[in-house]
Design a protein around this nucleic acid. Structure first.
Lengths: 228, 228
DNA sequence: TAAGCCCTTATGTAGGACATATCAAATGTG
DNA sequence: CACATTTGATATGTCCTACATAAGGGCTTA
């Protein structure tokens, strides 16, 4: 029966629980009342009664919001609205072992896109000190064996993100590292572009933004060549 | 007293609860046992007993993992490991009203970086059909009033992301839209680059990837000029 | 006025109870 | 014997009660 097949395909998605509903309602409530971080929230019993659920269900929903950093609770003070750490929540599910292959590939590409687009920020904010640091990283890599070379590679590109002057971007990169690593180690032989790290440093010192963009493109070319 | 000040600054961060600990322990457990999506997990009572906590605390932790999509539960079947929707969890905390100003600015820049870096993927995967769609979007915008123009702007750039052939990237962009909007509406006068949407379409039709990168740079230049 | 104590209160945790949905085995029927 | 139906067992979902703990607030006292 087609209907039977359908139900078999659709049913397992899971069932919606009270905690799910309460979570959404709490979100709406917080938004509608336009609480500001630090504002005190009603007590658990009041919320539970208002929502018509047990304190147990309410606490499951609150536990989620607390995990996301949207609320903080203290023993007697009650609950207060807080600023969630948007990247911290992201990090919780970013495990290469759990993510499916297609998404892994997508994230790998996402990182390539980011690095290609970094140039504009870097050229707005780079300092001589940054470049000196970057150069010292690049110099170290000359005589390193393979495992240390990977760490150095990470340090170099990490420094580039840092030079963007964008903390969120930098943290985002750190977060994506395991995934980048994972995909890279799946590749057979190490990819090596025509432009290496020292070349990039030289460009940063004396070259134009356009030069740097071209250099980065050449540096990452082996990765892009793999895509289809 | 210095010590008193310190404790006042540090203590309010919140206190760690059993649910927090259990959440971490469950994470480690799932990773260590290297469960695969679809694998059945022990029952709640067994887990609670093994961890030495009440079923209540355990369920608060499970509720968090369930929200992240890491596990799914069915009435009698028990719990199974699932693939979390990495972006879905991200979306939950991405509210312009809650995020602090610095992070908002960071995310705004992140989106600029993404758009500048899109060219390589687009030139690998663009099709004539894509370009035709993009053109029809660009054509519509000629005689639109302001509110519709914003929607059209979104549609145009959204289509660019779509042309990257990267679903995760596309969803990511959709997710960042409210924030982009929010920051843009804070600006006084509408920014208008020297290269408009129709120009970009023309480049995509006949120009090189380098041309397109330059075009995009000119198109977004007003945004970058604001940065410091 | 300031320091210290006690009481109140809201959250954190535990445990029991029952509803409900579902799987699986037992049962009935052609 | 094969298939449909019923029934029982079971794991999760929800509720309730109780108590521990910490922290704010007010009170007392020096």
């Amino acid at each position: 029966m087609a209907i039977n097949d359908l139900s078999k395909d659709l049913a397992p998605i899971a069932s919606i629980t009270m905690a799910d509903v309460v979570e959404v309602k709490l979100r709406e409530y917080l938004k509608k009342k336009s609480f500001l971080p630090g504002d005190a929230l009603p007590k658990e019993l009041e919320l539970a009664e208002a929502l018509g659920v047990s304190r147990n269900v309410l606490r499951e929903a609150l536990s989620r919001l607390r995990m996301l950093g949207m609320i903080e609770t203290k023993k007697k003070r009650g609950m207060v609205l807080a600023r969630p750490d948007i990247l911290g929540t992201f990090e919780r599910v970013l495990d290469p072992l759990i993510i499916d292959k297609e998404t892994l590939q997508d994230i790998f590409e996402l990182r390539l896109v980011l690095e290609m687009g970094l140039a504009d920020l870097i050229y707005i904010r780079k300092t001589d000190k940054d470049i000196a640091e970057l150069e010292s990283i690049a110099k170290k890599e000359v005589n390193l064996d393979n495992s240390f070379r990977i760490k150095n590679e990470i340090a170099f590109h990490g420094k580039l993100y840092e030079m963007s002057g964008n903390d969120t971007l930098k943290r985002f990169q750190i977060m994506l590292l395991p995934i980048f690593d994972y995909v890279v180690t799946l590749e057979k032989k190490p990819t090596r572009g025509k432009i290496n790290h020292m070349d990039l440093v030289q460009i940063l010192k004396t070259g134009s933004k356009a030069d740097f963009k071209k250099g980065m493109e050449a540096h990452l070319k082996p990765h892009f060549d793999r895509l289809k």
